[in-house]
Design a protein around this nucleic acid. Structure first.
Lengths: 138, 138
DNA sequence: CCTTGACCCTGAAGCCACTTCAGGCTTTTC
DNA sequence: GAAAAGCCTGAAGTGGCTTCAGGGTCAAGG
């Protein structure tokens, strides 16, 4: 199949597929006489694997690592476990950060219920005040 | 004060300060005879304002917008309210996404409690299954 | 046979928010 | 007078793509 069909059947943009090839996440495909890329069902699977890993917030570097591990079936999967543990910790930390951010944003939003003039807008006043308080505290 | 002192008193790296200047988030500073940048207390405040906005996950473009609004005190703060509402919605959406991701990652992690061989590792098998691959068959 | 349009190719640049690097100038301190 | 600390510029690198410019290939229709 050509790149367009691969793109349609995985939902990945053509440019992204070519990018993954450059980044060595997909093998170099065969070519037609007209220099078109030719893919096999195996390539569809590999691309799906990449997408699924990406949907789990893994970096391309991490996906590359996983693909490498998969290619040595007799090795140990220790690195996979470590990778996942790290991911989980990262996501937990990010969620905590975002929860704090939610509180801050909602509180800030409460300072201006209806449109004011800029000079009396509670949000802008609070933004300035908070920036100044950080100054006093640090 | 020179750029080094501004950096120390705000915790912002020198390179980032110069970057903010290029990006027109900080005004073009005066210079000494030796071509060193000279900053005023006003600049410290503006840089702190930028940092605080960044800590609220605003883009530099959004900070630029806020600075612009602040510079016209008699204008309306409608755009500020809209900006915050949008931010809040964004963060809420991201938190929801990450919660789902947490579940997925923890579930996946459960598939391999102790180090296996790659070919029997539950995590890798599940990753493949979810993506629609079964490398064991290849 | 020719053209149109869909499809494909490459390499380079753009995005964001910085960071890093290479190479050089200024000022202070010993 | 020489080293060290501080500053300068412009360019390139980061990640994960996307977009762009300027082409080549191929099947169908006139």
């Amino acid at each position: 199949m050509q790149i367009g069909e691969l793109a349609r059947s995985t939902g990945v943009k053509i440019e992204t597929i070519r990018y993954y090839e450059r980044e060595q996440l997909l093998p170099v495909p065969q070519r037609t006489d007209g220099n078109y890329r030719l893919y096999s069902p195996r390539d569809v699977e590999q691309l799906r694997f990449i997408c699924y890993c990406r949907s789990l917030d893994m970096s391309l570097e991490e996906v590359r690592l996983l693909i490498g591990v998969l290619d040595t079936p007799s090795g140990s999967c220790l690195t996979v476990n470590a990778l996942l543990d790290e991911k989980i910790a990262e996501v937990d930390a990010r969620v905590n950060e975002l929860h704090k951010l939610q509180d801050q944003l909602r509180q800030l939003r409460g300072f201006c219920q209806q449109p004011d003039e800029v000079k009396t807008c509670g949000i802008l006043m609070e933004l300035n005040r908070s920036a100044g308080i950080d100054k006093a505290q640090i």
